[in-house]
């Protein structure tokens, strides 16, 4: 079910402001692609444009093409709601619905889509998703408890379970570990490795070691100056990127960070 994504000549605007300019790349199916770059370079905006979440901000629009499995995400009769259903997202800070139990959080997406969900099907989805998110053993005895009672790392894995419960084609992760401690971070990174066999994963990260550890391919975004649009500097296999990048700018950024 995992799908590849083709981006060509993508410009992203907020009103009149050009936030990201001229991005072209191919994100491979069943692999992990990382976006790195300094703050404000548009990597999160780029990620959000892949499931049209950036449209939450009024005035946002794009030029160019994003094709998933040969279909344009921005075609005239494409429903952003349907796009988000098939391209799931995990956010910087864990955000389980505060009034729902763990069980209901996992089912939130499925309940939107089918009116009647038999108890057996529901139980099945919950167990499968939580197992997939490496959370089942920790929470199976307290599924009825509120999701916010969990630790930060567990909450984030709950959000991942919630995202994969609707069996999306692609999973987008926007700095999923930035609010977590190192142990929870490593749990999530392990999970990303496992999920890769079923999903196309795109992850934005601030942490370059993390990009090096989890991703197969990496895109480096930068901007020329504050107020200028962000652009894609280099897109390459992660190994090559961190050992022998094509662009001097990439080398400078990576080596700068590594000291």
């Amino acid at each position: 079910m995992a799908k590849s994504i083709d981006v060509s000549d993508l410009n992203i605007y907020y009103g009149d402001f050009l936030a990201v300019e001229g991005v072209s790349m191919t994100i491979k199916a069943r692999s992990v692609t990382a976006f790195i770059g300094p703050s404000g370079c548009g990597k999160s905006t780029m990620l959000r444009s892949l499931n049209r979440m950036h449209e939450v901000i009024p005035g946002a629009r794009v030029e160019g093409k994003v094709m998933v499995d040969g279909q344009s995400l921005y075609g005239p009769d494409v429903d952003p709601v349907a796009v988000r259903r098939s391209i799931g997202m995990v956010f910087q800070r864990p955000n389980p619905f505060p009034t729902m139990s763990i069980y209901d959080n996992v089912l939130a997406g499925s309940r939107l889509n089918s009116r009647k969900l038999s108890k057996a099907d529901a139980d099945d989805i919950v167990e499968r998703s939580l197992t997939h998110a490496n959370l089942w053993n920790e929470v199976k005895d307290r599924l009825g408890k509120p999701g916010q009672g969990l630790s930060g790392g567990q909450q984030q894995r709950l959000c991942i379970a919630r995202a994969i419960a609707v069996e999306p084609e692609v999973l987008l992760m926007d700095e999923p570990c930035s609010a977590l401690d190192p142990i929870s971070t490593s749990a999530i990174e392990d999970l990303i490795h496992e999920l890769k066999s079923d999903y196309t994963i795109v992850i934005v990260t601030h942490n370059m070691q993390q990009a090096a550890r989890v991703s197969d391919e990496t895109g480096f975004f930068n901007l020329k100056a504050a107020g200028q649009p962000g652009h894609l500097v280099e897109f390459n296999a992660t190994k090559k990127m961190f050992t022998n990048p094509d662009e001097p700018a990439t080398e400078a950024y990576i080596s700068g960070r590594f000291g």
Partner: peptide, 20 residues
């Protein structure tokens, strides 16, 4: 965050209001 959580699951605007 809660609104986006709902939208990212593919909720319509009304469903987002009901959920979040």
């Amino acid at each position: 965050l809660h609104e986006e959580a709902a939208l990212a699951l593919g909720a319509t605007r009304w469903e987002m209001i009901r959920y979040a």
